[in-house]
Structures are given as structure tokens and as C-alpha cells.
């Protein structure tokens, strides 16, 4: 199942006529253009002088290429009250996302290992309760979370955001690893136990070496979700807001001339890390994700 997702690996039994095939290609290409359109608009207009956007055609290629909007978006654009550009917020995002992804993935792997190989009475309930937490609307936790972060002295700080993302991320990472480890033969674990291997040794020596594919899924999922998060960032970020909050601030600011080219450059900057991850490892992600969700 998992491997068949990528590439047409089997013959489709359905045969189609020539007219139908032309129609199918036409539709597929039209949709490809639809999906590419906003990216094209952002890219093309991020290298135009502002006058070419306000007085020209958004779909046209730039007449005077300029990288100034990119420089402005990165280091001089007005974000809120200070002209800092997106740079400091971008760094906040990195400082937040790296530990949050690492911690939630490691915890998820251990949880998945326990919930499949060290089963105990009521483990399905424990898992069910953790699983449901993936799907709650986060509005239900915003008020108490603001309170608790304040009490812990973490309000408006990067460590506070790390805590929030780990807490609400372990449900998903546990789900991924649990589904993956469930398919791993438990007899091998028992045999290792009889040979005297302990809890951590079995995890380290037997399960971890085969966990590559699911670790990729977990890391990409967490990275994309945490990098792209806006609600927690804007609610709890304070002076350490992530780049999504800063971008929104930049675009929505009601003062001065709207610098569309800077907005587009900023949007691409904010999207670059996740796009990069997607281009490099997206295949593995979709494969792993589908293997988990379709198997049911």
C-alpha cells in the first residue's frame, strides 16, 4: 500500500478513448495552473518595483527586476512599531520549531513503543484520550493556557511557545509511531526480553533502527504545523512572535502605502522553510501519511 502511492505502479484496468484522454489531460493541466497561480503571482510581484504593481498588470513579468522588496521584507520593513523586517521573527520561529519538533518526536516514539509493545490494562483509553487531544479546537485551551504560561513565567517567550507546541503535538506523534510500531512483530521484542534486554535497550537496538520512515513523517508533520502555526504564536508570542504573526502584522498594517511587493517577498520568505522541507522530503511524507490513514 505504502509504496504504491507514489508512481503508477499498477496497470489501471480502465481503458479510455482518445477524446476522453485529451479532456483528462486538459483538466489536469488547468488544475496545475490553478495551484501554481498564487505562487507565480507572489514570485513575479516580489521582484517588481511597487509602481509596476499598482500601475501595471499583476500577471506580467517585471520590466525592472529588483531585489529591494526582499531586502526590505527581511530587514527593514515596519512590523508593528519597529522597522525590523521579518528577520528577528524568522529566528524566533527557528528557535521555537527545532526543540519543539525534536522533543515531541522523541516523546511520541517512546509513547508509541509503550502503547504497542508494553501494553497494559486501559492502554487503549490512554491512547484514545491522547488522540482526541489532536482534534480539539485550540480556542478551548487559549484562556487557561495564557494563565498557566503567566504563572510559569513563560508568557511571551520562545520557551513558552515550545511548551505549547510540544503539549499539543505529542498526540499526533504518538499516533504516528503507535500505528507504525503496531506492525512490528512483537515476538522479536519478547525474544530480546528473554535474552535479558531491558526496556530502553530494546527500543534503542531493535525499534529505533527501523523507525526512519515514520520519524520522517513525524518530523515533517510537526515542522510544518509548528512553523505554520499562527493562533498560538499570536496569542502567546508576546515579544517573541513567530514569523507567521509578523507576516500578518506586515500585511495588515493600515498605516502608510501598501507595499505589495514587500508583502509578497515576506510571504515567500515565511513559506521557504516548509516549501524546502516539502520539496526535499515531501514524497516520504505523503507515503507515510497515507500508509497510516488509509490502513485505518
Amino acid at each position: 500500500m505504502a509504496s504504491s502511492v507514489s508512481g503508477a505502479t499498477q496497470d489501471s484496468a480502465v481503458s479510455t478513448g482518445n477524446v476522453t484522454r485529451v479532456f483528462i489531460y486538459l483538466v489536469l493541466i488547468l488544475f496545475a495552473l490553478f495551484y501554481l497561480l498564487p505562487l507565480y503571482v507572489m514570485a513575479v510581484n516580489s521582484v517588481k518595483p511597487l509602481a509596476e504593481i499598482t500601475g501595471g498588470n499583476m500577471m506580467a513579468l517585471p520590466r525592472d527586476w529588483t531585489l529591494e522588496p526582499w531586502g526590505a521584507a527581511w530587514s527593514t520593513a515596519q512590523i508593528g512599531v519597529s522597522p525590523t523586517g521579518l528577520k528577528p521573527y524568522f529566528l524566533n520561529s527557528i528557535l521555537m520549531v527545532v526543540p519543539a519538533v525534536a522533543i515531541s518526536t522523541v516523546v511520541g516514539a517512546l509513547n508509541g513503543y509503550i502503547l504497542t509493545k508494553w501494553r497494559f490494562r486501559g492502554d487503549t483509553w490512554v491512547f484514545g484520550l491522547m488522540l482526541f487531544s489532536c482534534f480539539i479546537p485550540f480556542q478551548i485551551v487559549l484562556i487557561p493556557m495564557a494563565r498557566v504560561l503567566g504563572l510559569l513565567g513563560l508568557a511571551g517567550s520562545v520557551p513558552g511557545l515550545i511548551l505549547v507546541h510540544v503539549v499539543y503535538g505529542i498526540g499526533f506523534t504518538t499516533l504516528y509511531f503507535r500505528n507504525y510500531y503496531a506492525a512490528f512483530p512483537t515476538e522479536l521484542i519478547r525474544a530480546a526480553q528473554i535474552d535479558g534486554a531491558g526496556f530502553f535497550r530494546i527500543f534503542w537496538r531493535i525499534l529505533l533502527p527501523v523507525s526512519g520512515p515514520i520519524a520522517v513523517v513525524s518530523v515533517i508533520w510537526q515542522f510544518t504545523n509548528i512553523w505554520n502555526d499562527f493562533l498560538f504564536g499570536v496569542s502567546f508570542g508576546g515579544t517573541s512572535q513567530p514569523v507567521t504573526a509578523a507576516l500578518n502584522n506586515l500585511v495588515q498594517s493600515s498605516t502608510g502605502v501598501k507595499e505589495y511587493n514587500v508583502h509578497f517577498a515576506g510571504a515567500i520568505l515565511a513559506a521557504l522553510p516548509t516549501l524546502f522541507v516539502y520539496i526535499v522530503a515531501g514524497r516520504y511524507f505523503v507515503r507515510g501519511l497515507m500508509a497510516g490513514s488509509v490502513k485505518g
Binding site: S6, G7, S12, L28, T244, N248, V251, L275, G282
Partner: peptide, 27 residues
């Protein structure tokens, strides 16, 4: 339907998922 270029089309259909809703909204 055994489409030529499926390998190129799939990532084009899928990449918006990698973006933040804030980026999508701005565009």
C-alpha cells in the same frame, strides 16, 4: 489513468499544503 507526467503533477497539486494559511491568505 496512467497519466504521463504524474510524477510532476502530484507535487504541484500538493505543495499548497506545505504553506501557512497566513501565506495563502496574503497571496
Amino acid at each position: 489513468q496512467k497519466i504521463r507526467g504524474e510524477g510532476a503533477l502530484r507535487p504541484i497539486y500538493l505543495y499548497p499544503m506545505a504553506l501557512s494559511f497566513i501565506v495563502t491568505g496574503t497571496a
